[in-house]
């Protein structure tokens, strides 16, 4: 009952704008605290890896960005489904806000991966399975971005990009599996829901902090971008005018 009411309210940009102020501040504070704690912990207090030495510390910025970059794409796919099923205006706002954030995080993950690869594998760039799947993710983002740029009409732009996001999200598991199967140099995934981490707790605890922090950071930026987009789209309505009066 409560959820249903919440869902109906989400249809109103005004309601979302008002309620999201608090969420945004919450995310911002959490992200700041978690990221600072995680970075200091990872840089200074976590033990060095017995094989990779201190270059191992790059994991604390590389893995969170890569994880969140992919989650952002999947949430775009979910927003796309919401747009098609419920015709919710807010879903397109969310897609528009997710795009630049996801692109930025994917590019960052590729960059820090390259920097980590140099001391570990002896090369800045290796055509490795997971590197390729991150690169493909970047191309998927660029595809949606290019499509959005090409369509002037705001409703059609939203529907077209939602369709591409849905098809892309369905394909992501296949792409991931195929490139992993193809060949991989990567160490096995840092976290999985089903297995115990292979790292000792002193190593993965800061990583967990960083991952949570990065999710909060993405939440903050996406919410902030959504609020700007809402103001832009609703500038002719009474409530936005009342906001600045």
């Amino acid at each position: 009952m409560f959820l249903r009411e919440f869902w109906h309210k989400l249809g109103s940009p005004k309601w979302f704008y008002q309620i999201s102020t608090g969420w945004m501040i919450g995310f911002a504070v959490a992200a700041l605290v978690l990221l600072v704690v995680g970075m200091v912990w990872g840089l200074a207090f976590a033990p060095a890896d017995y094989q990779q030495g201190n270059s191992f510390r790059i994991i604390y910025v590389h893995v969170p960005t890569a994880m969140v970059a992919q989650s952002v794409y999947i949430s775009m796919g979910v927003a796309g489904i919401v747009l098609f099923v419920w015709r919710m205006k807010l879903a397109d706002v969310a897609i528009a806000a997710c795009l630049p954030v996801g692109m930025m995080l994917t590019a960052l993950a590729l960059f820090s991966g390259g920097v980590w690869g140099r001391p570990t594998w002896g090369t800045w760039w290796e055509w490795d399975g997971r590197t390729v799947s991150t690169l493909v993710l970047l191309f998927l983002y660029i595809g949606i971005y290019a499509l959005r740029e090409a369509i002037p009409d705001i409703t059609l732009r939203g529907r077209a990009s939602a369709l591409v996001a849905i098809v892309g999200t369905i394909n992501i598991p296949i792409i991931k599996y195929s490139v992993d199967w193809w060949h991989t140099l990567h160490q096995p995934g840092s976290f999985s829901l089903t297995e115990k981490p292979t790292m000792p707790v002193e190593m993965w605890a800061p990583l967990l902090v960083m991952v949570l922090g990065m999710y909060c950071f993405a939440g903050y930026i996406i919410l902030a971008r959504m609020r700007i987009e809402i103001l832009l789209r609703e500038q002719r309505t009474q409530w936005v005018r009342g906001l600045v009066a």
């Binding site: 990221l35 840089l43 200074a44 030495g53 201190n54 270059s55 930025m104 960059f111 820090s112 930026i221």
Partner: peptide, 25 residues
Amino acid sequence: FVAMGGHGLYVWLAYGTTCAVLIGS
């Protein structure tokens, strides 16, 4: 701490870029 056991360049490059991009955004 700065030298990072010889890997200082890579570690600080990765952290620096990430921080710069996050703050910039």
